[in-house]
Simulated assay, not measured.
Amino acid sequence: MIARWVPAGPAELTACRRGLAAALHDGARPPGADEGAVERLLLAYEELASNAVRHGRGPVEVTVTSNDTSWLLEVSDAAADRPPSPAIGRDPANGGLGLHLVSRLCDAHGWTTDGHRKTVWARIDHTSP
């Protein structure tokens, strides 16, 4: 595991993202991982974690793990009854396009629930295709 956070609000999200960026630039980045992959991971973190803080129910937990080929970002919250809902037909100026963005940035993504917690996940390959 690279890191685990339990952000309570937007200010903590920013601090956690900075911590993830620092870790990825100070040794937690696998050899051969390109900068574009790091940026995709950081953006996916920002989108999914901020969605959980804004629309989910606490506590929010964020973990980033790594294997030989990819990172796995998992964001969970206690709003198991609220599935992720991509914005449809909304003016982009009003926001709400984070799930669409994650679907384009990541190599795989999805969500699951265990009845008590919802987990939204994204896989980012270390190297660009």
Rank of each mutant, 00 (worst) to 15 (best):
G98T: 03
P92L: 14
R54K: 14
S66Y: 01
Y45N: 04
R117K: 09
S50F: 13
S85D: 07
A93D: 14
A52K: 04
I124E: 02
W71V: 00
I124T: 02
H55T: 05
G110W: 10
P59Y: 06
S66F: 00
C106V: 06
L99E: 01
R117M: 14
P86C: 00
T113I: 04
A78D: 11
L73E: 00
G89F: 08
H116R: 15
K118D: 05
G89P: 00
P86E: 01
I88M: 06
L101M: 12
A93T: 14
V60G: 02
V120F: 11
A52Q: 06
V120H: 04
R54N: 15
S85E: 11
N94A: 15
P84Y: 01
A78E: 06
A122T: 03
D107M: 06
S76Q: 10
S76F: 11
A78Y: 07
H109T: 09
P59T: 02
T65M: 05
R54D: 12
L72Y: 04
R123S: 07
E46T: 14
P84G: 00
I124M: 03
G96P: 00
R117C: 12
T65W: 07
S85N: 05
G58N: 04
R90K: 15
D114Y: 13
G95R: 10
G98E: 04
N51P: 02
E46C: 09
C106W: 04
S76H: 12
G96T: 02
D81N: 04
P59G: 03
N67V: 01
A49K: 05
E47N: 14
R123N: 06
S85K: 03
T119F: 13
I124F: 06
P83F: 13
Y45F: 10
S103N: 08
W71K: 01
L97H: 11
H116V: 03
P92Q: 12
T112N: 15
S70Q: 14
V62I: 07
L105A: 04
V75I: 15
S76I: 08
